[in-house]
Design a protein around this nucleic acid. Structure first.
Lengths: 200, 200
DNA sequence: CATTATTATGAGCGATCACTCAGATTCGCG
DNA sequence: CGCGAATCTGAGTGATCGCTCATAATAATG
């Protein structure tokens, strides 16, 4: 029974009360992280904001960073569900698919780039791997989508194009979230990438 | 004589020896930051790597983060010099100018995105402002460049376009630095943005 | 109600880290 | 040399933070 991530949830919630507590802790962790940064996100502070004691926090998480690991898992799982719901269809215009994905991804991240930016500051190899896996998932989706439209593309190296789209999107959503968001964000990203990708 | 950043260098180097020490500290800070992350970049560790004692470090910097402030200043000044050397010329193709800027900026950042990524993890309002100022400088340059080529552009909102270019570049250089760098990086960025910007 | 399982508490321990200071070392210069 | 100024040293101090554990409160069971 090889101990994979053996002790992550020390205690598994069996009662209603426990589930509420766990949610409160995760909610508090996200809020504290966004408002006070990683440096301010101490275990005692998170517990305080969650309205519980530190001891309670440590009944559900073995280490401080396990809390943030759970947050990352939550975020990436939501994003993966959006991508998995998409079935690349060559008959739908590439721009339409892309735009829908952008809107969908933005919708499942309530705290948006603010939380994500802070999560990137969490020092932990496990966390970094989870982020990397999330990116590989997006990359695979993009690669499939581009393949479905190969004939219409003016780019040659589809892997390179997927890489460019992924990271350009990340940079723009992270950096320009104050000036650009929602539908306009999706529009501009779609414009940028369709011009980059499509012939004519 | 309002105290602006009054006490930053506690001691100003007057001897050759002191300049060497200061350089060693900054060099060590950059190396430690890149190799061990912000969490591992303790003052004692930086001093150790620099080959001096902690006390020496605190003769040149009032606070730990002043060290990183100096690093950011160094990086942004180098970038600003590259941009200031450019005089947007409407007769030179937009793509050519852009590409030269990309190459120039990459050249003045020896440690590249690795250092920059870690510097973003330094928690300090002053530092964030310095980064913001650097971005505003880039934004202003891009805006001027786009203005010089206004007639050839298919985008309407030049401020928005500058924003997109800045952050897309940031995302790609930060995220794809393992797979894409140097000339190929500059080529792909140029392709992406000329297709985005130019008519035909 | 009694008994056991589950969940919650929070003072405090140990470790780490930013930063200090009293003194040693080295340099500039007559 | 000699002497003052500049530079360097590093053990130590106070504060903070991750995390524990003995104990208490609450829920489920019969």
């Amino acid at each position: 029974m090889a101990a994979r991530s053996a002790k992550s949830p020390r205690r598994r919630a069996k009662q209603e009360r426990a589930h509420a507590t766990l949610d409160a802790i995760l909610e508090a962790a996200a809020r504290v992280l966004v408002r006070e940064g990683y440096a301010g996100a101490t275990t005692n502070r998170i517990a305080e904001v969650a309205g519980v004691s530190v001891g309670t926090l440590y009944q559900y998480f073995a280490h401080k960073n396990d809390v943030f690991d759970a947050l990352i898992r939550r975020e990436t799982l939501a994003s993966q569900r959006v991508l998995d719901a998409e079935r690349p269809d060559p008959r739908e215009a590439l721009g339409v698919t892309l735009r829908r994905v952008f809107v969908g991804l933005a919708a499942v991240q309530p705290l948006g780039p603010d939380l994500y930016r802070q999560l990137e500051h969490v020092p932990n190899a496990l966390l970094r791997r989870r982020v990397t896996q999330g990116k590989r998932h997006v990359l695979a989706f993009l690669r499939t989508l581009l393949d479905a439209h190969r004939a219409e593309l003016r780019v040659n190296d589809l892997d390179l194009a997927a890489l460019v789209i992924l990271h350009a999107t990340e940079g723009i959503t992270m950096g320009a979230s104050k000036e650009l968001f929602g539908e306009r964000m999706a529009d501009e990203l779609t414009t940028l990438f369709t011009r980059y990708l499509l012939k004519i």
